Amino acid sequence: MPHKHVVMFSSGAGSWAAARRVVDQYGSENLYLVFSDVKGDNPSPHAGEDEDNYRFLRRAAWDLGGQLVWLSEGRDIWQVFHDDRFLGNTRLANCSKFLKQRPAREWLEANCDPAETTVYVGIDWSEAHRLPAIVRSYAPYTAVAPLCEPPYLDKDDILEQLHARGIKPPRLYDLGFAHANCGGFCVRSGQAQFKNLLKVMPERYAYHEKNEQDLRTHLGKDVSILRDRRGGTTKPMTLKEFRERVENEQINVDPYDIGGCGCFVEEENEAA
């Protein structure tokens, strides 16, 4: 049985670069690009990935060859939060568990023999500390992070490689986002990313702000994605409150408080 090379393909530049290294070393004959879509059946352009990511996903997959495996659990993140009665945040992202980790794992177990399969993720050398958790979470499959190995690349290097191959990167990078996943909205994001989303995509921000308010009403709890740490205490800060403080210049946002996605780099039992 030929050895399978399975790349967790996020529709961002990093996962393409990781897959490119796999193809350069092993070819694309037994390559599988596994994309777990968080949009579900929601027709809203603000749900799931940014619309340009879907363009990039198809173009990047065509460049790499192999088979693009498109998975969808059926729900979007807000449906998960509603059904699970829990609002995801920087510590616990149940959207990752239900919409990405589980569908990908189920596909792996249904289609791939652990003894004949290597799984690849797109983290780079700056996130190498996450690798032990990745290895544990994918066992008994072998998990590898190609971008944690030399030659080491930064985001600009990867974007240059994309342009050299005639591939336009996802537009979110040009719009100031460090990560191009989940439409620029991720419960793991820091305040700087939410501020940027409010600035460049106010309609998308408003969509998520409304969904957060609706969920708070549904749960009857004072929950939020963001936290207010002023005065030495930590308390919830809703997207509505954050927007109003930004608009009224009542908050100093750390420009380096970007946060980050980690859908395939944490163990599911830690996100349960």
Results as ranks from 00 to 15, higher is better:
221 K>V: 05
192 A>I: 03
100 K>C: 10
61 A>H: 08
246 V>C: 11
9 F>D: 10
238 T>C: 10
250 Q>F: 01
256 Y>M: 03
123 I>T: 06
225 I>N: 04
44 S>G: 12
221 K>N: 03
83 D>N: 15
23 V>K: 14
193 Q>E: 14
241 E>S: 04
99 L>P: 01
186 C>Q: 01
209 E>Y: 07
112 C>Y: 02
16 W>T: 14
209 E>D: 09
266 E>M: 05
214 D>C: 04
35 F>G: 01
47 A>R: 02
35 F>Y: 12
121 V>N: 10
76 D>S: 13
86 F>N: 12
179 H>M: 10
188 R>L: 08
226 L>D: 15
143 A>Q: 08
178 A>I: 05
248 N>L: 03
268 E>M: 01
197 L>Y: 04
64 L>D: 08
41 D>S: 04
37 D>V: 13
255 P>S: 09
179 H>I: 08
3 H>Q: 11
64 L>M: 09
224 S>C: 11
165 R>P: 04
138 Y>R: 01
127 E>Q: 15
101 Q>A: 01
45 P>G: 12
242 F>C: 04
82 H>M: 05
74 G>Y: 06
29 E>T: 11
10 S>T: 13
24 D>P: 08
83 D>S: 15
100 K>L: 12
135 V>Y: 05
148 C>L: 02
247 E>V: 06
272 A>P: 00
118 T>C: 13
171 R>Y: 00
49 E>C: 05
55 R>D: 07
89 N>G: 04
13 A>Q: 12
188 R>T: 05
66 G>R: 15
9 F>Y: 15
65 G>R: 11
56 F>A: 03
229 R>S: 15
121 V>W: 03
133 A>I: 01
44 S>F: 07
231 G>P: 00
96 S>H: 00
123 I>A: 02
183 G>D: 03
169 P>A: 12
272 A>H: 11
23 V>A: 04
226 L>N: 13
171 R>H: 01
58 R>Q: 04
228 D>R: 01
29 E>P: 08
217 T>D: 00
74 G>M: 04
58 R>C: 01
10 S>Y: 04
69 V>H: 11
27 G>N: 05
53 N>R: 07
175 L>W: 07
218 H>V: 14
161 Q>K: 14
129 H>M: 08
199 K>A: 14
180 A>S: 15
251 I>F: 12
139 A>Y: 14
153 L>N: 03
132 P>G: 08
243 R>N: 09
55 R>L: 15
27 G>K: 02
41 D>Q: 05
219 L>Y: 05
131 L>V: 13
97 K>L: 00
136 R>I: 03
110 A>I: 09
242 F>Y: 06
192 A>P: 09
143 A>T: 08
50 D>Y: 06
92 L>G: 02
85 R>F: 06
34 V>L: 08
134 I>N: 06
54 Y>P: 07
33 L>S: 02
114 P>Q: 07
154 D>N: 09
201 M>L: 14
225 I>R: 06
240 K>E: 09
181 N>K: 10
